[in-house]
């Protein structure tokens, strides 16, 4: 029983990758995991860790913090902004906002993307063709622009904490659904001609059951990689939305991109700390997630290594047209 548990533990995605890794690869994976771990802990314990609230400009005595305090000022290790917010507190609370947005965006896109992908891949026909053209069209469009349009349509530009997070989450979802869709669909097409699926059909297993228990289970191998790649893109998209002023309202939550937007005018005046710390926070989180993602990627199935070395989708579109051409040539 104990041995079984240990075995199962070793087969978990990240654990098994960690055991397979060596040298630089291992260092990268561990650094990435550490950064992600810190990010998650900060996000969960933000209320405890942050010295002040994200929208607080006065201390408990009712005295204003003062604006533009330099880093190292008493009570404000990272200084205060022009508006008089504590930079450290906003950076810590920002982790929570970012984490919520990622979880929401990735969950939405996984469910919708996988569902559509399974239907398209297994059932095929005109549904498949329509969905593919639609997904390709959306996928080719610059993701940030799509997210901006969605954010405006959903929240009409004004947003509370949850309103803002949901709007950002959905905006990012729209961008990511095609990616999950493509991968699951491709796997669905590959797996549906396997013998065991035929066998399941022969003994009368229902279509939904085949889709979810046979095809879906076998196509999950690639998902951790896309999941991590998407998480980093989700943070960048959220920050981009905030930076352009289409994200979450500053009084409703702390958001790194918005803080950087505010910091734009500070920079020319030589105030560097309002830009530096939220910016570094973004870089470290994205770096952590990317390191994990790339390591998982490189450590996955060596046969597929070359194909899946970049973002999965980038290289995957090449073979299709070329195959069509060669097929045509064989006629």
């Amino acid at each position: 029983m104990m041995a079984d548990n240990a075995n199962l533990f070793n087969r978990l995605p990240i654990v098994s990758h960690l055991r397979k890794s060596v040298g630089l690869q291992r260092a990268m994976l561990i650094t990435g995991l550490l950064l992600c771990g810190i990010f998650i802990i900060v996000a969960i314990f933000a209320p405890v860790l942050a010295p002040y609230s994200y929208n607080q400009i006065k201390d408990s005595d009712g005295k204003l913090f003062g604006s533009r305090l330099e880093p190292g000022s008493p009570g404000h290790i990272l200084g205060t902004t022009v508006g008089g917010f504590d930079v450290l507190s906003r950076v810590i609370w920002g982790a929570q906002t970012a984490a919520l947005a990622i979880v929401l965006a990735v969950l939405f896109s996984i469910f919708i993307g996988i569902f559509l992908g399974l239907i398209s891949g297994y059932i095929g026909g005109w549904v498949d063709r329509v969905l593919v053209v639609l997904a390709d069209a959306i996928y080719s469009f610059p993701s940030l622009l799509l997210a901006i349009l969605m954010a405006i349509a959903i929240s009409k530009g004004e947003s509370s904490l949850w309103g803002g997070i949901i709007a950002s989450g959905i905006s990012i979802t729209v961008v990511f659904v095609p990616q999950y869709f493509r991968v699951v669909r491709a796997e669905g097409i590959r797996i549906k001609s396997e013998l065991y699926v035929d066998a399941a059909k022969a003994i009368g297993v229902s279509t939904p059951k085949i889709m979810f228990s046979h095809i879906f289970r076998n196509s999950t191998r690639t998902l951790p990689v896309i999941f991590t790649l998407n998480s980093s893109e989700a943070i960048l998209t959220l920050a981009g939305l905030g930076f352009l002023g289409f994200g979450i309202e500053p009084t409703a939550a702390a958001e790194w991109g918005y803080d950087l937007n505010r910091a734009m005018s500070d920079v020319t005046g030589g105030i560097w700390w309002t830009a530096m710390f939220p910016g570094l926070a973004i870089v470290l989180v994205v770096l952590g997630v990317t390191l994990v993602g790339e390591s998982l990627n490189d450590l996955s199935d060596p046969r597929l290594r070359e194909r899946r070395s970049g973002k999965v989708e980038e290289t995957e579109i090449t073979p299709i047209p070329i195959d069509q051409v060669t097929e045509a040539n064989h006629e």
């Binding site: 630089l24 950087l260 020319t268 030589g270 910016g279 973004i282």
Partner: peptide, 25 residues
């Protein structure tokens, strides 16, 4: 490789602000 990862982990607007801070200000 680490340089490459830094290149696409840094949001362009943060890179831009840093570059402005150093080279312009």
């Amino acid at each position: 490789r680490i340089f490459a990862i830094f290149c696409y982990s840094t949001p362009v607007f943060f890179m831009g602000l840093l570059a402005k801070l150093v080279f312009s200000v």
